[in-house]
């Protein structure tokens, strides 16, 4: 079985044309990127606003819990039935799928952003106002940078959710790598299905790794505990002056 899948994957015929692997992958990536961008454009400002002002927190709680229970397949199918008749051209099946992807991408980003802002150390926030930052400065210079780890974890959940649902959306005629699974199912071409499954899994992994990499660069080491040590700053370097040495010098191990 796996041999057949490998044969399918290495067959040059499957790497060309409008249903070749490069085109299908590109479709999947474009759908995912576009919907993720729209979801973020909605969820990030909303999450920042709710977290910073503390207003409308019930929206976050409701959306986060409610949408997790919604079956994605049911949502997709429902959207197609509602939206497709309104469009009537080639995009009749694409638009509803994309709308569904956006809807599923919003909650993780929203609750991640909101929770990130909420979890900022109250003492740090208090100090930020206390040193004379304006509300805007507190948000941009203290709350947002401190919220990044949770925002990124929301972004990663949203990305995985979108890539997974885009696969399922092949059932309602969306392009992308899910086509191999759905079309293979129709023609009982199991090697093709398996190949599609593997390609989707790899895409999801790569996307997750990519965001993890961006996260590693963007998030302050002060928050992640990944500290850099230099020759001038050996682990044993303790404070020297002022009797501070007796306080003990806590140096965390890099994770």
């Amino acid at each position: 079985m796996i041999d057949l899948m490998l044969a399918w994957l290495t067959d040059p015929a499957n790497w060309t044309g409008s249903d070749g692997v490069p085109v299908r992958t590109l479709e999947h990536v474009v759908y995912s990127l576009v919907t993720l961008a729209v979801a973020c454009a909605i969820a990030v400002p909303a999450g920042l606003w709710i977290g910073h002002t503390g207003r409308g927190t019930f929206i976050v709680a409701g959306i986060a819990n409610g949408l997790r229970a919604l079956p994605t397949l049911g949502l997709l199918v429902l959207f197609v039935l509602i939206i497709a008749p309104l469009i009537g051209n080639d995009l009749a099946f694409v638009i509803p799928s994309l709308v569904a992807l956006v809807v599923l991408g919003v909650p993780p980003v929203l609750s991640g952003t909101y929770a990130g802002i909420q979890n900022v150390d109250p003492a740090a926030r208090d100090a930020a106002y206390g040193v004379g930052m304006s509300g805007r400065q507190v948000l941009w210079r203290v709350e947002l940078p401190c919220a990044l780890p949770l925002m990124f974890s929301g972004l990663r959940s949203a990305t995985l959710q979108i890539i997974a649902t885009a696969t399922i959306a092949a059932y309602v005629s969306l392009g992308g790598l899910g086509r191999y699974i759905i079309d293979g199912q129709a023609t009982h071409d199991f090697p093709q299905m398996l190949a599609g499954a593997v390609l989707v899994a790899v895409l999801a992994l790569l996307a997750d790794l990519l965001i993890a990499g961006v996260q590693r660069i963007t998030v302050s080491r002060g928050l992640t505990g990944r500290y850099r040590r230099t020759a001038a700053d050996p682990p044993s370097a303790g404070p020297v002056a002022g009797g501070a040495g007796s306080e003990g010098d806590r140096v965390l191990d890099p994770v």
Binding site: G130, G132, S220
Partner: peptide, 15 residues
């Protein structure tokens, strides 16, 4: 900005 402010848990910016 013209008044120094020190609080209980220092409130340092972790990032």
């Amino acid at each position: 900005r013209g008044i120094g402010y020190v609080i209980q848990h220092a409130g340092l910016f972790p990032h």
